[in-house]
Design a protein around this nucleic acid. Structure first.
Lengths: 335, 335
DNA sequence: CTGTTAGCGCCTTCAA
DNA sequence: TTGAAGGCGCTAACAG
């Protein structure tokens, strides 16, 4: 029964020395006798001594844990991002607390509260799609808990954040379609609360303009990312007097929904209407008719960078003013 | 600057009472005057007092955190399970630490160590596919850290575990194929280290026997779950003098790989060869040619049950001897 | 009803 | 080079 784990006190008692000596020996403190040091370390070894992280955390007011809040682990984009975060955190001896907001601002708020109460050293967050009020996030400032946003970042852009260049991604995607001869390209953009929605539209508009094409507002649909919303938008697009011949979707999931709806309307995918989307998820490889192309947003890398940024601050290697938002380049993956 | 968070000491000082009184007031302890209680609670409110979880954890040798170790968050089966675990844990005021083994026993061992050092109250684990040695897991016993297995459980079955009835799931699936008239049904079973591989084979064998069919060993392939392994197995099956007309795959991912390989060999999916698999993942809904059917293993429910089981022990509502392994019924989802 | 005290495990002065 | 003492924030005897 290892019930009672050995403490430095225990070691001290057995060796008839003081706890502080033991503490120093264990930390390779300079001012300590070699003999005592060896003795202590030997006994510590034998007893399988392990420092009580809880006590250390308590003492240092720091518990080597970061919190991650994201919309949905079920979405591969985020599960890949988590891997990046986890790898970086683990390498720096931090552990990762995870919470899903399920795209609800209310849950997001609760998670932030919970993590704050648990005194995490910092938080990495990707916003819920409807988060339009940042109060619950700004609170963290007061408590000196650093917050790094990734992918779904707030408007304004002043904050610590890692994201990908959605604007140029959209531009790449639309240009690709234009080069394939498409003239009527629709855009399924996301909700206004996501900055990435406007960015998609910017890239879209700019690419069209460069090709000297007129913007048709009927071809731009704001969707809420739900399957129903996507289906409704698609119905509207198909009802247009002049149907689009290509659709740029907010992300792969939206694209899957859209493709499904289109198929039900007897549209031949990537023939009658071509689909292009964002995210480039692994599951695209399993589809027999994937989108023509998908904008790679490097979720794993984003996760890594966000975690590194956060830990740089937590560990005081950098201050907030040293840091500029990171915007990753996207790449168009053609299937 | 809320830099310094208020402590009960602070409250005590301001009110000129003792810390223990404050503590009691905050905990609605019976033996305390209503007036003082109100006073304390009012001031606590004003100062935005919040108990220091770290101090409480330290004091009580318990930090209200459970660790979850699973192979791969990217797999929807596991991300759904996590949701179940998270929901139960949150409801009971626990937080969740997550680690991915990426199906490596070595990483699994490291995560167990890390979690143990961080003094989690308990662990929920789904084994890496190659874990064939349980030493790193048995260690937890000595430290009195309860461990609940889910889905990928160890051989022997004595342990605390939640899993689904793979044997009967396989039987259902094979029976379904037999009723569709298939006579040559192949099985892509997983590695021997997973108990679920043998269980699949048992169900498979039993269903065939019930239909008075002979077992053809050539039709059973052990695969390592990698895309390459699956592809190789499929090649072998296609090279048989008498090809199978249906294949039961270890899980949906294996099934996707198999379908891809088959398609490259010009097999018409679900016509020349029918596919059936395990897991019933959400992404199946996006495939235009999904497997004919998939055995639903209720990952979310498994996660919930595993977390409940663990917390029952952690909170001492039950002892280990009270608990029997849970085996969930599967259902065949027909597409 | 309330205050005093001790202690959780560790680190960090301050003294010796 | 070592020891003694104090304290992190909180809880829980034990006394009044």
């Amino acid at each position: 029964m290892d019930q009672k784990l050995p403490t430095i006190k225990e070691i001290a008692k057995r060796l008839n020395i003081s706890v502080s000596t033991v503490s120093r020996a264990l930390h390779n403190h300079p001012r300590i006798g070699l003999r005592t040091k060896m003795q202590v370390q030997k006994l510590a070894e034998e007893l399988h001594y392990e420092p009580n992280t809880l006590a250390i955390s308590f003492k240092q007011k720091k518990w080597f844990t970061i919190g991650v809040i994201l919309p949905e682990l079920n979405e591969q984009f985020f599960s890949q991002a988590i891997s990046g975060i986890e790898d970086v955190a683990t390498a720096q001896n931090y552990t990762v607390l995870i919470g899903q907001s399920h795209d609800s601002m209310e849950r997001e708020r609760m998670l932030v509260e919970a993590f704050r109460k648990h005194r995490v050293d910092g938080i990495v967050l990707s916003m819920a799609k409807n988060t339009d009020d940042y109060q619950h996030l700004e609170v963290l400032d007061k408590y000196n808990i650093p917050l790094v946003y990734f992918d779904r970042i707030p408007k304004g852009g002043q904050a610590l954040s890692v994201s990908s260049n959605i604007r140029s991604g959209a531009e790449q995607a639309v240009r690709y379609l234009l080069e394939k001869g498409h003239k009527r390209i629709a855009l399924l953009k996301g909700p206004d609360s996501l900055i990435a929605s406007a960015q998609r539209q910017e890239g879209y508009t700019s690419a069209l303009k460069q090709h000297g094409l007129q913007l048709d507002p009927d071809l731009i649909k704001e969707i809420d990312l739900s399957p129903e919303g996507t289906r409704a938008a698609l119905t509207q697009l198909l009802a247009l007097p002049q149907r689009p011949t290509a659709i740029l979707c907010f992300n792969d999931y939206v694209c899957f929904d859209a493709i499904q709806a289109a198929r039900q309307a007897k549209i031949r995918i990537n023939k009658d209407i071509s689909f292009v989307s964002f995210a480039n998820l692994p599951i695209c490889n399993f589809l027999d008719v994937p989108p023509l192309a998908s904008v790679e947003q490097h979720p794993y890398r984003q996760g890594q960078l966000a975690a590194e940024m956060l830990l740089d601050i937590v560990e005081k290697r950098k201050t907030i003013t040293d840091i500029k938002p990171v915007i990753l380049d996207t790449e168009l993956r053609i299937f």
